[in-house]
Amino acid sequence: MGDTEDGSKPKKIVFVSVGTTCFDALVRAMDTQAVKQELFRRGYTHLLIQMGRGSYFPTKFGGGDGSIAVDYFTFSSSIANHLRSASLVISHAGSGSIFETLQLAKPLIVVVNEDLMDNHQSELAEELTERKHLYCSRPQTLHQTIVDMNLESLLPYTPGDATPVAKIINRFLGFPDD
């Protein structure tokens, strides 16, 4: 069903976000034919990449011709809008980006940057993978993750709540409960 002719096809956007630094390995992985073809086969029509300070520029493509349209930008103050209009989000492993996406109930693949020195970031992605809220991948396994993923099996994330902490702090300081 993925390889129908274009035209009337609804817009389905894959939004890729690398955050405030650079993550060329991810952008490069997104720009491979294998990944782009697989995304197109799955019905995605547009690939939009936020590439941050990276030095690898993906190939822009207007779409049609049986391929996914590709566009990119470096930074934007309206990441939230891009997330909202996306059908699939592929993101770096920063907690801000992860929870912003989950709270919008968007399917998410987190790609861990293995070049970071203190790589605690995979902890969160792996825990949330275990809880079936997202898929976790690396740049070199991204294609396989996209081939294998089944978005229906992901569970919605219930946003957390800071009230318990606030309560303990209040009580500790001797404030009466409201």
């Binding site: 405030t20 907690s95 929870f99 800071a162 902490v165 606030a166 209040n170």
Partner: peptide, 20 residues
């Protein structure tokens, strides 16, 4: 702090009684 810290902190502040 960047990298998610600020978002978490402001989330907590939202739950604390601001007048105290």
């Amino acid at each position: 702090g960047s990298g998610g810290h600020t978002a978490e902190m402001l989330n907590l502040l939202g739950r604390l009684p601001k007048d105290r």
